[in-house]
Design a protein around this nucleic acid. Structure first.
Lengths: 212, 212
DNA sequence: GCGTAACCTTACGCACGAGTAGGTATGCTT
DNA sequence: AAGCATACCTACTCGTGCGTAAGGTTACGC
């Protein structure tokens, strides 16, 4: 039989991307432990040893996924954030980029957020990325504060930023589970909660617990 | 040798609790898959077949943990929420109870939030619990709205509630990772973000995206 | 045209951990 | 004191899935 080779030979770079695509998909569906290297290889249209040859062990493969998806996300957000814009516009663009990314890469988001979080070995990677997001948000708040001549302790700012990031992640999560949802609209709703709350804080309005 | 039995014979109910305590601890540290039934049994001071005899398979054991911790948490929150209080006081008490619980049961929180979320089979359980939290939050907002004679579409309300719950979870997560942090203070900070933002919404203030 | 390197495969070893079979000891009841 | 239920154990089976050894095939340089 000369039907030719069943599988085409492709250059390394291309195969690597195929493998990563496949891995992200399987990891997001089955979870880190639930995913088998065999299935990842199969979906990538390649056999298992190739995966080991190109991307290393399962753990290394997962880190590679994490890295690629994380980088893509950070770039998407960074690309939208122009430091010269007024604070609300800047926040708006950042949020829109964020939700846009999640809407377009639901699998990547699931790997990044749900999986990496649960597994000890990868928690650190995720923490670093999240810390950067918090830093960005805190920086924005700080900038806006100074513009109004006000000042707040950095720790306070960070907690607020942390809450905002958390709320965004939560809505992103919801978005990932609802394919019919519109990222743009989700971003607007997040903006409503975030900006109005933050705006109050910026004006020096605070809430205090009742005495007791 | 008549040193007596190395391990005391204990009634079923007591051993069950020991096993659950052990399981929650191990699951929170190693994750669902990373945890081995052998280790859980060892930490509980018992042998493996006993665990199977009392709590069933690994999956059933995990569900039992989820159930116990989830019930404890919901009770802690429900016990603090008095429907007759004004909205801000009610939110404050709920948040304080929530963060107080997380601070006192960091392991339980890790199992509930981080683990259950990542594993397909348990996602549903968690989703239900979360939906109840969102419902509670949305109900509070709705109540406050009506008191001011305003009205907002239920869907809108739910998304805001979702964001608030997400922000709280995020801060709770941060709390679980920082043993030195004060739950009370965390609750206050959450209250600041939540109530100020929500308060604006209640007054009919909204944010709109710039045209483009 | 022919070697060589890169691509790709089948087929296995091996460890680890879920779940069980079958047996022993202890205390409560009559 | 015999009997019976319950607490408890040691020591296995067996599936699953990571990681690899050893060998086949295609393209490209000369």
């Amino acid at each position: 039989m000369s039907t030719g080779p069943a599988f085409k030979r492709l250059p390394r770079a291309v195969r690597q991307q195929q493998m990563l695509d496949s891995a992200v998909r399987i990891f997001s569906r089955r979870g880190y432990h639930g995913a088998s290297m065999d299935e990842i290889a199969e979906v990538a249209g390649i056999s298992k040893p190739m995966v080991y040859a190109y991307l290393g062990t399962k753990e290394e493969l997962f880190v590679a996924c994490l890295h690629r998806e994380g980088t893509r996300m950070m770039e998407a957000i960074a690309g939208a954030a122009d430091p010269d814009l007024p604070a609300d516009e800047r926040l708006w663009r950042g949020l829109r980029a964020f939700f846009g990314f999640v809407g377009a890469h639901r699998d990547g988001w699931a790997v990044l957020y749900r999986q990496a979080r649960a597994e000890q070995p990868f928690a650190r990677e995720l923490t670093v990325m999240r810390a950067r997001l918090v830093e960005v948000a805190a920086g924005m708040l700080d900038h806006a504060l100074r513009a109004e001549g006000r000042e707040v302790a950095h720790t306070e700012l960070e907690v607020v930023a942390y809450a905002l990031v958390g709320a965004s992640e939560s809505l992103a999560d919801w978005l990932a589970d609802h394919p019919e949802a519109d990222p743009e609209k989700t971003a607007t709703q997040m903006m409503n909660v975030a900006w109005l709350g933050a705006g109050q804080l910026l004006r020096g309005v605070t809430w205090h617990p009742p005495q007791g």
